[in-house]
Each structure stands twice: as structure tokens, then as C-alpha cells.
Design a protein around this nucleic acid. Structure first.
Length: 677
DNA sequence: CTGATTGACGTTTTT
DNA sequence: CGTCAATCAG
């Protein structure tokens, strides 16, 4: 018998034994994920075969943790494992089996954001639309929106109403064709193509329907249209679907997530049973009060009020003259906690809205020699070296991937210049053929020099040789990778390019880290393959990507979005000002789309409810932007919480380094009086 | 083909 | 104030 302390007996009964659709509507810190984990363990211990259960989590990290906890609950005797993955990983698994039915090559690669952007740019170029108002970024956003609605290019073109959308429709068509020809799928395609597969190939859908008797979904409030349909398809047979979520924590509306799926669960599944969890075991009472008060300003939500079960200190609010002082103040505070109060650094987090905010905090932390880890910031994969070698790997796996090929065809320089590439590319586009295939014709037509031709041939052979090596299953991936790096002379290139030894060492270090990452993946994976490794890193995350050393001595810096589902003893929520939180973009569209402010409010709510014991909210009174200093307005969310803050104001005074400021009074200490809008 | 210089420009979040 | 792309001189 597994106990879940946060459930009363009838709730526990429902969660454990209910068959058919079940909605667990649970506030922050009420043990949502635990419900799913326990239910899964319960199902298995009552005789359901583990492999018949599919659990969908929001991140790969969450999936791994859930698997660990499940096996732990069951006493590690699991021979067969349940399937626990994100929507995207689950779809990759299906597509790796079935994608040929859609006319894609089996060895497809997944394009990351950078690749997508190049592909979008190329599509616009080919259509000679580079001078139109449609920029690659906008195009990608539009394509994404269409895909999330399940619309293929031809249908999208039909429904496009504005001129802008007409153009985007044409570019979408082009973009999709070129990806397909390259044997590449973008991120949205993972869901989109799986949906297409289910729709057009009933036998493939049937195979997936047969696989699972129970389906569970965590963070259901962030489900988008396509995910909703995929789920609906897969459980059609039995409706054994358990979803868990909190409409107040829906923060991915911009990515197509629709709260209506969780709000309307009962309409979709009339037999649904609903369990409500409102007992919060994470945060102290004052923090809960703050959260409740804030989120009560939102309309269109399931009415619920979190009940706190823990007394303790509460929220602190601090204002600083500018963002520099804010960073100094927060870091000084943290330093005091760590060095004087022996607080474990890993219990501390700084949360912020945008990715440019942490810079200044990082600087201060380094100055004070406090270890930190910055979550999210794609830094590792943005390194040129990583991108280059990743492109090599992609080309090795999928020879059709011209985009990646073009990235590395002359890296390191091997005498295949821009001119040669451009001519070949022009011909390839014109004749709708692959880059490699047009070489003989181009040579014959005298479009490329004999020297370039020789270099191309040589490179082709080199690639073929390396590809052959990678096919040998008895040789380790990491060894082959080292081989590749040597074969192309990448280290020599680093030495040549960077004169100073410091730079050289750093770049080589990155290279080494990449090798380590591959080795680490190899050790963990059941049947390691280059394809799977590339999938893993494209799907963002997993530890194989950037070997993240778990560091007890590091505090955490991350965006509010990345913080979802996590908790920390002490949280610093910084930059509470109009334009940041709520973000300017949402403020601007407030008029025509009030829901955008509500999402910002939920974001703030998520931030607050990450704090278990201490919450510190801060705001700079001014901020330097584009060279000039500007006064900031306190966030409207502060005013909405103000009575709660005032009654619980705690200034952590006493320590000599504290730069505590007087509490915020109505109207604040800035000269901005209330009536702003 | 590299490395330095200039100019434009910037408005969010990520599986 | 930074970043990044385009541009140019060597």
C-alpha cells in the first residue's frame, strides 16, 4: 500500500483505482507529480504490466526522475519498464519506426532552432522574398502556428487571409519540401508528422493504440492542440487517461498551449472524474497568501484557493536604486546566507523573466566567488565548435542533409570556397537535386574549377571513410568521434585560428567536453547509436548533452519558465517591474488580448510558489537600457499583492552587510503615483 | 581568407 | 550599452 500524505482517503481511492478518464486538478505544491508516480506504481503492483503504461512528462529530466522514483517505490524489481517520456521523445520513437510511410527517409535528422532559421531563410531566398516584410523569424512563428493546428502547407495556403499569410503560406510549402528532401524534421514536425501518420495510416495508429492500456499526462495545462489530438487518438479504445495539471500554472500559451483542454476536460471526456487538490505542503503560509491573492486577479480559471500547512517567515520585498544595486544587494544577501548562516547553496535560486537579466547577477556572483549554475541558456550548444561537429555528425547519419553539409564543407578550410558552393547550390535548386549529385554536371559545364572538383572528391571520400567507421558496432562512438576530429584536423584548425594559447585551451576544452558527453551517453544508453544521441541532444536536455556536474555548492539561476515544477528553500524573484514582469510585449497587446497579462500573472504565481521557506522579491527603481538610464514602474503585480506583502513584511536586518530598504508603502518609494496605466 | 572595423539594432518565454 | 552581421583592408 502506497501512501500519499496529501490525499484524503476518498481522493486516494479515486486516484488509485479509478479507470477511465480522470482529471487531477491540483494547485502548486500539492504533489501533482507524486500522484502520477504513485498511481503508476500502484497500477504495476496490482498486476498491470509496466510496459502497458505511458506517462508523459513535460521535460526529459522530469521523465528520468519519475522513472527513478517509480523503480524506487517498487523496490527496484522492475524487469519491464513503463514508458515515461515527453511528447516529443515519444513521437520520435514512433517516427523512427513509421516515418517511411510519410515518404521520409528512415535516417531523418531533427533540426534545431538554428537549422530551422537557415532553412526558413533559404526558402525565402529561393522564392526571392528576401525583401518582403516577411522575416525568417516571423515565417517560423507562422509555420509553427499552422503546424500546431495540424495544417499542412496546401491547407494553410487556403486559409491564409492576409497578404502576409499568403506569402508565409508559399514559403511554408517551400520550407516543408526542402526539409523533406533533406530528410530533416523540425521540432514541430515531431508532433505534426505523428498526427499526420495517425490520420492517414490507420494501421500505424492501431499499432500505437495497442501498445498502452493506461496513459497519464503531467502538466496537462500546457497541452497544445496537436498534443490533445494525439492523446485523444491513442486512448480512444479505452479512455484510461489520467491527466494532472493546474490551470493557474499555464505559462506556455505563446507556444500553443491551451487552457481550454484542462478546463474542458469533462466536455471531451464526459465520464471524467475530477479530483481537486488544494492542500499545499511546500510553502509557508505567508507565501501562499501572496500567491492566492495575486492569482485571484485572473478570470477564466478554476476557482481554487491553496491551503497552507506550514508556518514560517514569508516574503520580503526590496527596492534598489538601479539594477546594479539590485544584483549587488541580492548577491550580498546570498553570500551572507551561505557564509554566515550555512545555508546550502543548492537551496537558493534566483528567478527572472528574461534571459538578459542574469548577466549582471552572474557578474556579481563571480566577483563574490559564489558558484552558480545557469539553467537553460543554450551556451554549450551555441559554441561554434559544437555546432560544427554536430553538423558533421548529422551529415554522417544522413547524407541528404545539405544544410549541415554546407555548414562544414569548408570547415576547416579545404579549398572549397563560397563561389563553388554557390554555383553548385544554384544548380541543385534549379534542378531540384541533391548538392552532391550535381557535381559531375557542374564540372562538365565548367562551373567549378578542377582544383575545387578534386577537393570535393577528396572530401567525399573522407566522409565516406568516416561513415564506414561509424557503422562498425564494435568500436565505441566516442572513439570514432575522436577519430573524426583527427581526420578532419579540427584541433590543428583551432591552433591555427586562435593565436593566444588561452583561447586555444578553452576551445580544446569544449571539444573535450563534447567527447565526454558522448562517452557519458554511451555508458548510460541501452543500445547507443549516433542517431539516438543526436535525437537526445536535439530534444533538449538530458544530461548527455552538456555533462552537468551536480554541484551542491552552486546556487541556481533560471527563468521563470524553466523553474516550473521545481522548488527551492529560498527564492529571489528579481526585476518586478512593468515591462519585465509583466513583459512589455504582453503589456502592449493588453488591450486586444487581456489574456496575455493573465499569463504573465500566472508566471509570477509560478515564481512565488517555487519558494518553500523564504521569498525575496526585488525591483530596481531604474534600469539602463540602450545606454540611457530610465526610471522603472513597479510591477502591477506588486500592487495586487500589496496588502499581503505589507502584513508580512520581514526585513532581514541585523547582518552588517544588509542593504535593506524600507518596506514598500502604497504608491511605492518611486515618484510614480498609483494612477499609471 | 582572416581579423578588425563599422554600423544598425534591439522589445520574452522553449519542448 | 552590447551584439551581430556586413564590410573592408591586408
Amino acid at each position: 500500500m502506497l501512501e500519499i500524505s496529501s490525499l484524503n482517503p476518498s481522493q486516494r481511492q479515486a486516484v488509485r483505482t479509478h479507470q477511465g478518464p480522470l482529471l487531477v486538478l491540483a494547485g502548486a505544491g500539492t504533489g501533482k507529480t507524486r500522484v502520477i508516480t504513485y498511481r503508476m506504481a500502484d497500477l504495476i503492483s496490482t498486476g498491470v504490466e509496466a510496459t502497458r503504461i505511458l506517462s508523459v512528462t513535460f521535460t526529459n529530466k522530469a521523465a528520468r526522475e519519475m522513472l527513478e522514483r517509480t523503480t524506487h517505490l517498487l523496490g527496484r524489481s522492475l524487469k519491464k519498464r513503463p514508458v515515461i517520456s515527453t511528447f516529443h521523445s515519444w513521437c520520435v520513437g514512433i517516427l523512427r519506426q513509421e516515418i517511411e510511410a510519410l515518404g521520409y527517409p528512415k535516417q531523418f535528422v531533427i533540426y534545431d532552432r538554428g537549422d530551422q532559421e537557415s532553412a526558413a531563410r533559404k526558402a525565402l531566398q529561393v522564392l526571392k522574398m528576401t525583401d518582403t516584410a516577411l522575416k525568417p523569424g516571423d515565417l517560423l512563428a507562422q509555420i509553427s502556428r499552422w503546424k500546431m493546428q495540424g495544417l499542412p502547407p496546401d491547407v494553410a495556403q487556403e486559409v491564409a487571409d492576409s497578404d502576409q499569410e499568403q506569402l508565409a503560406g508559399m514559403a511554408y510549402r517551400r520550407y516543408q519540401l526542402s526539409l523533406k528532401a533533406s530528410g530533416a524534421v523540425d521540432f514541430d514536425d515531431l508532433l505534426f508528422l505523428t498526427w499526420q501518420l495517425f490520420k492517414n495510416h490507420p494501421e500505424a495508429l492501431a499499432r500505437q493504440q495497442e501498445r498502452f492500456d493506461f496513459v497519464q499526462i503531467d502538466e496537462y495545462q500546457d497541452t497544445n492542440e496537436l498534443q490533445f489530438r494525439l492523446v485523444e487518438s491513442i486512448v480512444r479504445r479505452h479512455h484510461n487517461l489520467c491527466v494532472v495539471g493546474d490551470d493557474d500554472q499555464s505559462i506556455y500559451g505563446w507556444r500553443g498551449a491551451e487552457v481550454k483542454h484542462i478546463l474542458g476536460f469533462q466536455q471531451s471526456y464526459p465520464a471524467a472524474k475530477i479530483v481537486r487538490l488544494e492542500d499545499n505542503y511546500r510553502c509557508t503560509a505567508p507565501i501562499i497568501q501572496l500567491a492566492n491573492q495575486l492569482v485571484s486577479h485572473n478570470r477564466g480559471r478554476h476557482e481554487k484557493t491553496l491551503i497552507a500547512h506550514k508556518e514560517g517567515p514569508g516574503a520580503t520585498f526590496r527596492e534598489y536604486p538601479d539594477e546594479q544595486a539590485e544584483a549587488e544587494g541580492v548577491v550580498r544577501d546570498i553570500s551572507y546566507l551561505i557564509h554566515q548562516l550555512n545555508v546550502k547553496p543548492c537551496d537558493i535560486a534566483i528567478l527572472f523573466r528574461t534571459n538578459e537579466q542574469p548577466r549582471i547577477f552572474e557578474h556579481e556572483l563571480r566577483r563574490k566567488q559564489i558558484h552558480y549554475r545557469l539553467v537553460g541558456g543554450q551556451s554549450f550548444f551555441d559554441r561554434k565548435e559544437i555546432k560544427d561537429l554536430q553538423a558533421y555528425l548529422k551529415v554522417l547519419v544522413n547524407p541528404k542533409d545539405d544544410l549541415s553539409l554546407l555548414r562544414i564543407i569548408n570547415v576547416p578550410p579545404r579549398g572549397i570556397g563560397d563561389a563553388t558552393c554557390e554555383r553548385l547550390l544554384a544548380r541543385a535548386v534549379k534542378e531540384k537535386r541533391r548538392f552532391w549529385d550535381v557535381i559531375p554536371d557542374a564540372a562538365q559545364a565548367g562551373e567549378i574549377t578542377t582544383k575545387a572538383l578534386n577537393n570535393l572528391r577528396q572530401f567525399e571520400q573522407q566522409l565516406a571513410g568516416v561513415r564506414e567507421k561509424f557503422k562498425n558496432p564494435s568500436v565505441k562512438l566516442s572513439e570514432n568521434f575522436t577519430h573524426l576530429v583527427e581526420a578532419i584536423g579540427y584541433s590543428r584548425e583551432i591552433e591555427r585560428t586562435y593565436k593566444n594559447t588561452e583561447q586555444q585551451e578553452m576551445r580544446n576544452l569544449i571539444l573535450g567536453e563534447f567527447t565526454n558527453a558522448i562517452a557519458q551517453y554511451e555508458n548510460q544508453a541501452k543500445s547507443p547509436s549516433l542517431t539516438e544521441y543526436l535525437d537526445e541532444i536535439s530534444l533538449g536536455g538530458s544530461d548527455f548533452a552538456a555533462p552537468e556536474r551536480p554541484d551542491e555548492n552552486a546556487i541556481t539561476l533560471m527563468t521563470l519558465h524553466s523553474a516550473k515544477g521545481l522548488e527551492f528553500s529560498r527564492v529571489y524573484l528579481v526585476g518586478l517591474e512593468e515591462g519585465i514582469l509583466p513583459h512589455k510585449r504582453s503589456v502592449d497587446e493588453e488591450f486586444e488580448k487581456p489574456s496575455s497579462i493573465e499569463e504573465e500573472r500566472r508566471l509570477c504565481y509560478v515564481g512565488i510558489t517555487r519558494a518553500k521557506d523564504h521569498l525575496t522579491i526585488t525591483r530596481p527603481q531604474s534600469r539602463i537600457k540602450w545606454g540611457k538610464k530610465r526610471e522603472t514602474k513597479p510591477s502591477r503585480f506588486l500592487k495586487e499583492m500589496i496588502t499581503a506583502i505589507e502584513s508580512r513584511m520581514v526585513v532581514e536586518g541585523g547582518h552588517p552587510t544588509s542593504a535593506a530598504r524600507p518596506p514598500l508603502r502604497s504608491g511605492g518609494t518611486t515618484s510614480q503615483p498609483g494612477g499609471n496605466r
